[in-house]
Design a protein around this nucleic acid. Structure first.
Lengths: 208, 208
DNA sequence: ACAAAAGTGTTGTATATACACCCATGA
DNA sequence: TCATGGGTGTATATACAACACTTTTGT
């Protein structure tokens, strides 16, 4: 038991984990085993331990669910409305994470874990629907003024693959020549010299 | 006394309150009366009560220090490093607020409260230096892609006054004609018909 | 030889920037 | 009448958007 002179809320982190699979933007949800909202889908997350920072807590949760370290992780927003959680007052610091899908180790205990596209998302526990929406907006906005989408790519990739990522997230076609002009102007990419074979047609170059 | 099965951190809000006075961007600091960092300057803030939301808590603090309601308030970031506070684990949700200086009622008990320009800021308690820096960066960034600076204006103002606000925050001269072109294109401003007298020269028009 | 994706420049359009003079008022 | 800030337009540069054909490879 832990006692305090004044009441303390509980503090948690929840993570919106995005990846790209099958040419679609997907996010990770877990089916709740525990008490409130049991059996319902929710964002991965959990309470912050006293001996870890907020970001450490988020990283721990992330690794527990996906087996991945060293991913792009960004604090999203903090939610603290009164009745978010029926048990007690819980404040959650929401993070969002982007992962290249080939880095993900699917966990063994992962029966109640699945990836959902944005329009497949079921009813979520707590206020997680709101959090997911905010994360998606942030991601969309950042595509325009940052190179955040690179986080979805693996070590080596072709420009066409990168363009596909943009088209998938933006849900729109992008002009190939303008796109390549823009990407190359960033000077964040260099050629590997390697050439992609397979898939029955002309091969490509490149990497970041 | 309040007891919990698991340890809970304390949760606070801190607010970076900006205003413009004497042609300078200033922020509000209070001199700590209480135990940790006693006598040192710090951001206004305090613990979140269980019966209020985070934003409500921030608004309450804001009103306590400035006597102002209905101001621009935006969640900035949440800080939760381990040793931010020597007393116990404290997580703080930082907000930033913008106020038109003529709306501020200086509080009677305000002896240990003062406004500081960005380069006058003394050593601050906790990690408040970091929070102030983040708030200032956010404010600067938002000038470019939003109309956030309007929050510093009172009901009626002239275009020259608004331009002064931009020049003050950006620390740079702005072209008068281009500025007016941009502002009027926003269509967020309308003329009042009123005309400003005093100050010994040609009078101006306008309002938002 | 053909299907499929890779690769490559130019032109027009919109947006942002630079710049100088006359006007109205209070003292 | 003069000092002071208010008010106004145009020309240029820069960034963004539209657009079509040739090349390479695997089957």
């Amino acid at each position: 038991m832990y006692t305090y002179e004044y009441p303390h809320p509980a503090v948690a982190t929840d993570i919106v984990i995005f990846t790209l699979r099958d040419q679609q933007l997907k996010l990770l949800l877990i089916k709740r085993r525990g008490k409130p909202f049991k059996g319902q889908w929710a964002l991965p997350g959990g309470f912050v331990r006293l001996e870890e920072s907020l970001e450490t807590a988020a990283k721990r949760e992330l690794e527990e669910e996906t087996g991945v370290r060293d991913v792009y992780l960004e604090q999203l927003y903090t939610y603290g409305n009164l009745n978010r959680d029926p048990r007690e007052r819980v404040i959650t610091i929401a993070y969002f994470a982007l992962i290249a899908s080939d880095k993900i180790e699917v966990r063994a205990d992962a029966e109640a874990v699945d990836w959902f596209t944005m329009d497949e998302i079921p009813d979520l526990a707590f206020d997680h629907q709101k959090i997911v929406k905010a994360a998606h907006q942030r991601l969309s906005a950042k595509l325009d003024y940052s190179t955040i989408a690179f986080q979805f790519m693996s070590e080596k990739f072709t420009l066409s693959e990168l363009q596909n990522v943009y088209e998938t997230i933006l849900q729109a076609k992008v002009d190939k020549r303008n796109f390549r002009k823009w990407v190359l102007a960033l000077e964040r990419i260099e050629e590997t010299g390697e050439i992609k074979s397979a898939e029955s047609h002309r091969p490509a170059k490149f990497r970041p």
